[in-house]
Design a protein around this nucleic acid. Structure first.
Lengths: 119, 119
DNA sequence: CACTGTTATGTCCGAAAAAACATATCGAGT
DNA sequence: ACTCGATATGTTTTTTCGGACATAACAGTG
């Protein structure tokens, strides 16, 4: 049973931070590249880059630093702030699952069984 | 300062439950009417009704029961299941704020100050 | 100095979502 | 019967969002 997928999104005025941006940050950290991270999650480079731009603009310090040119064409990596934000977001997700397990289960029990599985 | 507005959304296959539907449920409970609840949150009746329909279809039992005609034109109210779902969702939000206060604060501290206020 | 893969942007188009507008139905009171 | 306010649906228009292309700049390497 595909259980209840959970989605946590934070709003700070214009800026919003949700699973999309968090996954992208994680992908960049692993791949060392915006385009590679985007590809991995089936996202166009343009879109991935726009998300990065939004994050860099919305936080006090950029979360991603990037360089272009060079042997491998360029690359990107998380800044200290980027790592902190990602870690905090992941921790938040984990705590939500932990602290809210009862409520999650309560709601899930009332959902139509057809909704639980993949369709 | 309007700090971090929090948005929690649950996915059960097709069905999704987020702040919009939760607030609508709360509005219906208070107003006793789908249209009044929708108006109160600046939402067209059509949209409010579609949300209700989606919830009633997605859960094992309807969350909202409605009647039309009569002296006051009709009305709507939460079913037992509706009250339970709303209560569980609110409890989930509360627990998230409580359990995740540290992480919330950590992320919020890194956001550009311009983002906190209404612009 | 040409080659290469990535960053960095812009423009255009279609799909999907939301808003706007339009009816139709119902039933207790008057 | 007629009214009134709310439910219940359709239809049309507008807006928004994302995808598809297109292009330029960049810097290390062979």
């Amino acid at each position: 049973m595909t259980p209840t997928r959970l989605m946590l999104r934070l709003y700070f005025g214009e800026l919003m931070l949700g699973p999309g941006k968090a996954d992208l940050l994680a992908g960049i950290a692993e791949e060392g590249s915006i385009s590679a991270a985007g590809r991995r999650m089936g996202m166009s480079y343009k879109r991935a880059w726009m998300l990065v731009e939004a994050m860099n603009a919305g936080f006090a310090e950029p979360l991603v630093e990037s360089a272009r040119g060079g042997a491998k064409g360029g690359g990107a990596a998380l800044t200290e702030a980027g790592q902190q934000v990602l870690a905090a977001y992941r921790a938040l997700e984990a705590k939500l699952r932990e602290a809210g397990a009862d409520e999650l289960a309560a709601i899930g029990a009332l959902v139509r069984s057809d909704m639980s599985n993949g369709k």
